[in-house]
Design a protein around this nucleic acid. Sequence first.
RNA 1: GGCGCGAUGGCCGAGCGGUUAGGCAGAGGUCUGCAAAACCUCGUACAGCGGUUCGACUCCGCUUCGCGCCUCCA
Length: 467
Amino acid sequence: MQFHNSLSRSKEAFRAIDGQPVGLYTCGPTVYNFAHIGNFRAYMFEDILRRTLRYAGYQVQQVMNLTDVDDKTIRGSLQAGVPLKTFTQPFIEAFFADLRTLGIEPAEHYPAATEHVPEMIALIQRLFDKGLAYASEDGSVYFKVSAFPAYGKLAHLDMSGLRAGARVAQDEYEKESVGDFALWKAWDANDGDVVWDSPWGRGRPGWHIECSAMAMKYLGETFDIHTGGIDNLFPHHENELAQTEGATGNPFVRVWMHCAHLRVNGEKMSKSLGNFFTLRDLLGKKYAGRELRYVLINGHYRQALNFTFDAVEAARASLARLDEFADRLAETAAGAQAGSGLPAWAGTCQQQFDAALFDDLNVPEALAALFALVREGNSAMQNGALAPAAAASLQALLTDWDRVLGILAMGRTKDTVLPEEVARALASRQTARQNRNWPESDRLRDELARLGWEVRDGKDGQKVKKL
RNA sequence: GGCGCGAUGGCCGAGCGGUUAGGCAGAGGUCUGCAAAACCUCGUACAGCGGUUCGACUCCGCUUCGCGCCUCCA
């Protein structure tokens, strides 16, 4: 199995730290608003990563932080006139609800920044002890980038060439150097009652320190994989790395993985362009979480993904094809025990599927293997060449693949009970068909369609499906 | 200015130096009373211009266009 490591900018064979579950830290949401579909692209990539690791036989220990204290959450709570926690709680709940909607597996830990301030303070103290931090007049604390020579190794930036850009020049803090970043921010009036005591005075933690402190707490000083969106690469992850390695003297993370952005109609998603969708917006347009999941996984994570409504429609049709296949397989298997072997063509698909996933999570290629299986399977069933036991084996294979894909079983409901109205129409239709009364048969088919049921005629009579 | 990414048939989207990606949509066919589903066949796609090579969508260079990061955005 190999993954692309942002540190080396190349694919590397993955080896977990001996005998431990794979430690996975995934940067989570800032809970000041509903997450948008672009954010979920990142969480979806992380879901595929975690599922693939588990599929490959690893245990996974995933941590996703909840950033519940920063400029935006504080501003929001002040504007709403409620305590910080009261403000963030609904967004946290919405976030978890959205994860469920998209079939994203929960992480083992979701630490909130506000619950880990002592750990952050302790970490900042270690940085002081190492000469990597300094306090300014107003009681803020900064990381001294010049004292950490490796700074820039993740983002591949040469800090010596840093010139003061617009944002840097406007910085109001008393930093020694423009590259330095805040570990602790002294209280000011905009913070309201969001404040903690520290050895350097009252204030609140900087953003980057939360991830370092919480990652270390739950995963140790060195762990396997750290992920996020590409925009987190710099400065966030670079700073995390500097803080953690600076404090511990040990490597922080073995593999850094970053996913590319989501675009909408070829453009960057932004509020001003009006192409900024939350999951709720899309569900309101009658798209299912399952369909959106399909769209989000059907592109390589390191490639910009273009989100279009056409793509969601295509996803819906693709899923219908998969469902059709699964149902037909179930019929063919008819409750048989899975046989010992798979047909040869299924073995080929299996190899393709695994090879694709294990090669830096190539989900599109894995889906190609899935559709190859569907085509071969349908063909075999059509020719009566698939024994029940073989069909059952294929069902088991699909179930196994779905541990990674998470799209096959999700959101499918088995409607075994026919409404009386539907049953009656079917019975009449059967009579009509026996009498070769085609106009009546077609009329009843239309009527069933109006009731939301699709009827199909095959060799062994009518079959209905809920639309 | 620095660092980096991309441009694939109507849409989405993989990929590799020489052999079909895949899905959706579309066309024709098989099956069927019809329809649906399924299966079969079908698009001379690889931004442009040079170069390397027996051979390039795939490597190199340039051009055009688009995108990201450059201090708190997944």
